[in-house]
Design a protein around this nucleic acid. Structure first.
Length: 285
DNA sequence: CCGTTAACCTGAGAGC
DNA sequence: TGCTCTCAGGTTAACG
């Protein structure tokens, strides 16, 4: 579900609302997420003060200060975090994830804070997880953040050397660049006017510069618009993300290409089991 | 090392 | 109404 922009929006909301707050109680309703929630988590979190919220790739990191283990949260495909006022159920602007009508059935973790706020982790598919950062070594296998200056021409040129895969797979490869998922890969590639099936061994210098430029552009805009909310709840509140209204290709197969003066009809193909949308007319670079 | 596939889960929507 | 089928914002172990 959440890709870099959604996690970033969430990070900013949490920073605003729970930084410097103390955790007073933890309720784990179902520990069976992708990995079992550590047994000592509740005990560990109790009375800890949230010092900082960080994002690495699609992961949220809760920092409790010097020499304290950090908590790592991944939202998988369907994880959401929302904040509610404990008593009157008033929605805070935690992010577009906040929603009063979300079924409570999948509220797997509830964290009570001393400012009368409750943080709820809801995840129907349970692909998300909670772990201590120092016990999750896969975090070390991630490529640079797309906004990091390390993500540059020479890095890409070198990374794709002797590799044979297509551009869509490359952009979603978290070892190459971390944080891009299926929606934003599709949108970025459309912006580059490159066919998603293009083999990376054939990328031109211009292609590479376009990839860098459009990756930042698309992700920045998505963050600015509060991420993408592709799930339609029965009632919406003002806190949904808005980038889904800006989709140029994602979910738009058989529809008209939105690029100026392009008469193409968007196509959908499957790449590595993920839906891939593109315009066969204008994505030809 | 590389690239591909299956598996982990629940729910929504389509088609019958 | 209900059944079956497919698909969904992700990751990773296992395989050839």
């Amino acid at each position: 579900m959440p890709e870099l922009p959604e996690v970033e929006v969430l990070k900013r909301s949490l920073s605003k609302n729970i930084k410097s707050k103390k955790i007073i109680k933890i309720k784990i309703n179902n520990p069976n997420l992708r990995y079992k929630i550590p047994k000592n988590l509740s005990k560990y979190l109790k009375n800890k003060v949230v010092k900082n919220i960080l994002r690495i790739s699609k992961y949220l990191i809760i920092d409790f200060g010097v020499n304290k283990k950090k908590l790592l949260i991944h939202l998988g495909m369907s994880g959401t975090i929302h904040l509610v006022k404990k008593n009157n159920k008033f929605n805070t602007n935690a992010s577009f994830y906040s929603h009063l009508d979300l079924p409570t059935k999948h509220n797997h973790v509830e964290i009570f804070l001393n400012n009368n706020l409750k943080l709820i982790y809801n995840d129907p598919r349970r692909f998300g997880f909670f772990k201590f950062l120092d016990e999750y070594f896969m975090i070390n296998n991630l490529g640079p953040d797309p906004f990091n200056k390390e993500f540059n021409y020479n890095y890409i040129k070198n990374y794709i050397k002797n590799k044979k895969k297509n551009l869509k797979i490359l952009l979603m490869d978290q070892k190459f660049v971390s944080g891009i998922g299926n929606i934003y890969a599709n949108e970025i590639i459309f912006n580059c006017k490159i066919n998603p099936t293009k083999n990376i061994s054939k990328l031109t210098s211009k292609n590479i510069y376009d990839i860098i430029k459009n990756t930042k552009k698309v992700l920045k805009k998505a963050i600015y618009l509060g991420g993408s909310s592709i799930q339609n709840f029965s009632k919406t509140n003002g806190e949904l993300g808005n980038f889904q209204q800006e989709f140029m290709v994602y979910g738009r197969n058989n529809k008209k290409c939105l690029r100026n003066n392009c008469k193409g009809i968007l196509k959908k193909v499957t790449i590595s089991n993920r839906s891939t949308f593109f315009c066969p007319i204008c994505q030809i670079n």
